[in-house]
Simulated scan of single mutants.
Amino acid sequence: MGASGWSYVTPCRESVGVALEALKAEVFAQLYGDGDEYASMEELHADEEFMEEEGTHSILDIRRVVETLKVPRESRTADYFTVRPLAPDRLLIHFDTERPTVQQYEDAVARSYTSMRTDCPGDLDTTLLGEHKMRWTGFYVLLHTDDLPTHVGFFGSSGD
């Protein structure tokens, strides 16, 4: 993912959309909490030139959750600035289950970053973060404790 990549785990509160908004509020506070650049997320998103051209290189660049399993395509304008679920068959490849835990997710992300640092960049294609191919988009994975969804893992890339 490089400098523009992101990966977060956040508690699953009623829905993925609620979890996304809670995470964005947390990240906004970390990046802009002093209020010097932007006083609110609304003010940040109102700066269309910045958001369309540069972005924050964080989850703040994501505007909505979509429930399609279709892989995002650069030719589909509606795919930009979205996160979508990782398909069940891809969950099985990366976790050997459709109900991964937070620890399994964190381990998969760590393996992805290790692959990025090796001399074999093609290895990234076989990792969880290698699933992500299109900038300004991402995926989410429901993470489980005792077979119940308790957290959401978000990963993707924005910016250059």
Results as ranks from 00 to 15, higher is better:
A108W: 10
S75I: 00
D160I: 09
G2P: 03
P88D: 03
M134K: 08
M51V: 14
L129P: 03
Q104W: 02
A78P: 00
A78H: 00
V141Q: 07
L20G: 09
Y113L: 15
S40L: 05
V16M: 05
V65W: 02
T77D: 07
T82L: 05
R64S: 06
T10A: 15
P72F: 01
P11T: 08
G153Y: 11
P121I: 01
D119S: 12
T82W: 04
C12R: 15
D147C: 09
G2M: 02
Y140Q: 02
A39G: 15
G33S: 13
S40P: 09
E37W: 09
V109L: 03
V71M: 00
G2S: 08
T114N: 12
E106G: 11
E67T: 03
H45Q: 09
K133A: 10
W6I: 02
M1L: 05
V83Y: 03
S75D: 09
T137C: 13
I93R: 15
T68H: 02
A87Y: 00
E14P: 12
A29K: 14
L91R: 13
V102W: 00
L148E: 15
A110R: 13
V16F: 10
D107V: 15
G5C: 03
T101H: 13
V27N: 05
D89R: 11
V9C: 13
D36M: 10
S40M: 07
V109K: 01
G35S: 01
Y113Q: 12
